[in-house]
């Protein structure tokens, strides 16, 4: 039986904060709402209770998400979400700890915490919404702003190189890494679900539109136009395998990029140590 509109909205109401007034701080057409929808449905599918989820964020447009959701929400300081989340998870390993972050928050000011959370393989799911810019402060260049792209701090084109968050996470030791876009909604819901189910550090990078700044400055059009571009410029991991690096230039490789089901998880390892040392 097909899901009715009523059932769909019931799922949303179960996880949205009734006392928090909407609309959100996000611009009309922002990709963040699509990611929030996918995350809610993934949590619902997995049957997590509101009480067992801790949602941690830093500063930025994306980081406002936990405030709208009826979980244990921790809206922290710029770049530090993963460090706070590490404390939550380490102290209370039975909690499902999710970090929602952006490219500036996670990879610039929070870059150190990002690689170390990956290295520890602590059981945290990190959803990194990559819109290639600092939206909240008005469109400055970020660690994922492509070469030559315009931003308010690269008014003559970006001369810096950019990070690939998925490569970085994989190299640093994350054990589940996937990329989606806000255009490819069904896949996004699927990879967020898989990331939540994965034991260990999981990264989901979501390519999203900031048509207000990045899109406008780089003449990429409005929100629907940018979603169309994500559709046209995405290549599945399966297809990408047989392609040259030069062919993948400027494309988004989407799907599961890396998974390691063998490597042990940090809190589990510490618990084993505690069991041995306890009472000594």
């Amino acid at each position: 039986m097909a899901t009715t509109e009523k059932q769909k909205s019931d799922v949303m109401l179960k996880y949205l904060r009734p006392q928090k007034s909407f609309p959100s701080v996000w611009c009309p057409g922002c990709g963040n709402g699509i990611v929030m929808g996918a995350f809610i449905r993934a949590v619902d599918k997995l049957g997590y209770t509101n009480d067992e989820v801790a949602m941690v964020s830093g500063i930025g447009c994306t980081s406002r998400m936990p405030v709208y959701l009826d979980f244990n929400s921790l809206h922290t300081a710029h770049g530090r979400a993963l460090a706070f989340a590490t404390g939550v998870k380490f102290a209370e390993p039975k909690m499902k700890v999710v970090v929602i972050t952006g490219d500036g928050d996670a990879l610039a000011i929070g870059g150190n915490h990002f690689i170390h959370a990956c290295r520890r393989n602590i059981d945290i799911t990190c959803i990194l919404i990559n819109n290639h810019t600092y939206g909240m402060t008005g469109g400055q260049g970020s660690p994922t702003t492509p070469a030559d792209a315009l931003s308010t701090t690269t008014p003559y084109g970006n001369v810096e190189k950019h990070f690939d968050p998925c490569d970085l996470a994989k190299s640093a030791g994350a054990t589940y890494v996937a990329r989606g876009t806000v255009y490819h909604y069904p896949q996004l819901e699927k990879i967020i679900t898989a990331a939540l189910e994965h034991k260990g550090f999981s990264l989901v990078e979501v390519i999203a539109n900031c048509h207000t700044y990045y899109g406008r400055l780089n003449r990429k059009g409005d929100a629907p136009a940018m979603l169309e571009q994500f559709k046209e410029n995405s290549i599945t991991t399966g297809k990408a395998k047989n392609m040259e690096a030069s062919e993948l230039e400027g494309k988004f490789v989407i799907g599961k990029i890396h998974e390691d089901a063998v490597k042990s998880e940090f809190c589990d390892e510490y618990q084993k140590l505690v069991e041995v040392q306890k009472g000594k």
């Binding site: 300081a77 530090r80 590490t86 404390g87 939550v88 380490f90 209370e92 150190n112 915490h113």
Partner: peptide, 16 residues
Amino acid sequence: EDEIASIAAIIGASVT
């Protein structure tokens, strides 16, 4: 990984 992370982690642990 640094002192910023240290104080962040204990604040996270304290709310639990």
